[in-house]
Amino acid sequence: MRLAVLDVGSNTAHLHVVDAHPGGPPQSVFRLKAPTLLADSVDADGALSDEAVDRLVSAITETVDASRRHAVTDLIPLATATIRDATNVEEIRDRVREVTGIELRSLSGEDEARVTFLAVRRWLGDSSGAPGAPAAPLLLLDIGGATTEIAAGSGEQPGFAVSLPLGAARITRTMLPCHPARRRDVEAVHRHVLRSVRPYASAVPAGALQVATSKTFKQLARVAGAEGRLTLRGLHDWIPRLTAMRPEERAALPGVAASRSRQLLAGAVIAAATMEALDIDHVDVCPWALREGLLLRRITELSRS
């Protein structure tokens, strides 16, 4: 069966088309990213601007048309936190439905964390080389545009999951107005994240595998020179350098897209402060995330029907 997930976020509408069979991992067929660039288009009342909604509808139209060209039989359209939390979300959904025929869905932040946890657990299982072995405890970190998710537990469902309003785009917009950034602003973000995350430190199981996912963590791992793993030491080395850079200088770093260069510093500070609050010194970066989790969950549902 040919399935697709359309992940509509603050930077892009990302379509991933796969061929899926029960009992096996989804096989990638086609990907398309269409820019949404919503991060700087939220007004003081929490609504997306008319121009941003136009970009959003155009991006969704492009990706939905592509899914039809690739004969997708089951499309999972997901609007993540920037759209889900917009005060004009119902108007946005109406526009998308009228133009594309697609009904945008949303999950709560905690449910997104649970679905992403499933994807990471399956990825670890596929790469462990030890089928049937007891699952080690897992800690998952995921920094998005509007929120940061933390989940932990054993098995395929976390015993603990939380979504916090600490996304890289949100923090950039609200707390890091200048680029190069002011040191006092960076320190304020660090303190804010520490205060927000520390209450959840006791939920992290001892000896847990420490895994992160999301574009933010992938970019930071490449910038810090250890692709596939991000260390707290590497973040501490790079945060002062990122603070002193203009967005166009950050965009020249390996793996950093121009559309995300402004929020890279916030991502780095959020990552570092979260790791400090949870008392971990590194995370391994997983290539599977929310999109893969949605596909895996849908394959399981279809196999049971």
Rank of each mutant, 00 (worst) to 15 (best):
I239W: 01
R291P: 09
F217R: 01
A151Y: 08
G9A: 08
L104S: 11
A188M: 09
V5F: 07
A135T: 15
T148V: 12
R68F: 01
I280Q: 04
R55Q: 11
F30P: 00
A181P: 00
H14D: 07
L176R: 07
E292N: 10
E156Y: 13
D65K: 12
P205F: 13
A20D: 04
G101V: 11
H70L: 04
C286A: 15
V197T: 10
L118S: 03
R304L: 13
V89P: 00
E156L: 14
L78T: 06
D54Y: 08
M245F: 05
A47K: 05
R195Y: 01
F217G: 01
P77R: 08
A39Q: 05
Q219T: 15
L278Y: 09
V96C: 07
L56T: 06
S108A: 10
A4H: 01
Q263W: 02
A224S: 15
A20P: 00
D142N: 14
P165E: 08
E149W: 09
R262P: 01
V17M: 11
I83P: 03
H179R: 09
Q263M: 15
D7R: 02
E187K: 12
A59I: 07
L15P: 05
A221D: 13
G167A: 12
G267H: 07
R250H: 06
T213P: 11
P22T: 13
L78I: 15
R195G: 06
V18R: 05
A221P: 00
V120Y: 05
V223N: 04
R183F: 00
S58L: 11
D111P: 03
R298S: 07
S49Y: 05
A206S: 15
C286D: 12
T300G: 12
R182N: 06
E227A: 14
H179C: 00
A181T: 02
I83G: 04
P131L: 10
R183H: 12
V64M: 02
A151G: 07
G267S: 07
H21S: 12
W288F: 09
T116L: 09
G293D: 05
A208C: 13
V18N: 06
G159M: 10
P254Y: 08
D185V: 04
A52Q: 01
H70R: 12
R173E: 10
V189H: 07
V18H: 10
D74F: 06
L194E: 14
A79Y: 03
